[in-house]
């Protein structure tokens, strides 16, 4: 029932259009990630869903009910802020109970919900602490507990992990994901970090300059990016997107470089590139050994690309070698950056 439907949403600030005709659905109990570079309008969309920002045009519906103009408190949403928004003068217990006290929930009910939420996020020992005496991860847990006690069906999160160090981030990411599934929350999660999107999302909404670039499950975005932007935004290191006219000669490359207009671009993921006997001759510029894999940064004439080799590659900067990839791993983008699927019979 409490799925979210967003239709033709627009946010206009004077002459500047921060959100431009955005539509997507969040099915009940699923987690949708709004992904995109900083300033693309993710927070603005989230705040319009929450009711913290006026909608310029379009509609937001939760559970089939149009709530575009409804008061924020009546929408049935809770929100976790990037800064956690904990009240600095209240201890953990009072912070968690704040919403229940505003809504005049009965004392006994408050206590059971507090105990439940605290147990879910492991805060039982810290209820009397002040926020200033908590670590980043613990503050994050308080913010989560506040969301849990509110028992709102829809939960919005705005870059909740960006203030944590890398290790804690991975830990909290799993915890949020676990809670979302356990409590069957309908969640919209904002991030600029593609790893978070890839690992948590049921569906990713990729945004650029206030517009939707692509919508789909993480695997679909990764395997069939609709635009060159989507191709480069997901994946680490990003996809090689190479202008066709920079391939000086195609002889000997076989199906690696298909026939296409000079202003098109050819995309290959770094992990699909192999060192081989034949193929594109390149010079190695840098070798980044990461343990499980090695990332080679190479150039071939004016063309620069990256290759990800499993394990430890026995090459050094300055080495000359040949790289190849399978025709099936090629993504073609036209002059406007749109995906073009090639007619396979033509390339082979």
């Amino acid at each position: 029932m409490p799925g979210i439907e967003i239709r033709n949403l627009v946010k206009q600030w004077e002459a500047f259009r921060a959100v431009d005709d955005v539509s997507f659905d969040v099915p009940q109990g699923s987690l949708t990630v709004l992904l995109g570079p900083s300033g693309c309008g993710k927070s603005t969309i989230l705040r319009m869903i929450a009711g913290l920002e006026d909608v310029s045009d379009g509609t937001v519906a939760i559970g089939g009910r149009d709530i575009t103009r409804q008061d924020a408190a009546q929408r049935g949403v809770s929100m976790v802020f990037q800064s956690y928004a904990l009240f600095p003068h209240l201890n953990v217990r009072e912070n968690i109970l704040f919403g229940l006290k505003v809504r005049r929930v009965a004392k006994a009910d408050q206590e059971t919900r507090l105990a439940e939420a605290a147990a879910l996020v492991g805060l039982e020992e810290l209820l009397d602490r002040m926020p200033a005496k908590l670590s980043g991860g613990q503050r994050q847990r308080v913010a989560l507990a506040r969301t849990i006690v509110s028992s709102q069906p829809v939960c919005l999160m705005d870059e909740p992990l960006s203030n944590l160090d890398a290790k804690l981030r991975a830990e909290m990411r799993d915890e949020i994901h676990r809670l979302q599934r356990k409590l069957k929350l309908t969640m919209v999660y904002v991030t600029h970090d593609q790893t978070e999107a890839m690992s948590m999302a049921d569906e990713v909404v990729l945004l650029k300059d206030g517009r939707i670039e692509q919508i789909g499950p993480p695997a679909a975005l990764y395997e069939t990016p609709e635009t060159a932007f989507a191709a480069r935004f997901l994946g680490m290191p990003p996809m090689n997107v190479m202008p066709m006219d920079k391939f000086s000669e195609r002889t000997g490359l076989g199906g690696m470089v298909p026939d296409a207009p000079a202003n098109w671009r050819l995309g290959v993921r770094p992990e699909k590139i192999h060192i081989s006997e034949q193929g594109l001759p390149v010079v190695v510029d840098a070798v980044d050994y990461m343990g499980a894999e090695t990332v080679l940064r190479v150039h071939s004439g004016p063309l620069e690309l990256m290759a990800r080799i499993d394990g430890r590659a026995l090459v050094e900067p300055g080495d000359e070698l040949r790289l190849s990839w399978a025709p099936a791993d090629i993504h073609m983008f036209d002059d406007r950056g749109k995906r073009r699927d090639l007619d396979r019979s033509e390339t082979n």
């Binding site: 913290l52 924020a72 505003v102 509110s150």
Partner: peptide, 17 residues
């Protein structure tokens, strides 16, 4: 921080509260 007001508003706190 302005988020405090927004967090309270989402919970339905009045301005006076």
């Amino acid at each position: 921080p302005p988020e405090l007001r927004e967090a309270a508003r989402l919970e339905g706190a009045t301005r006076w509260y």
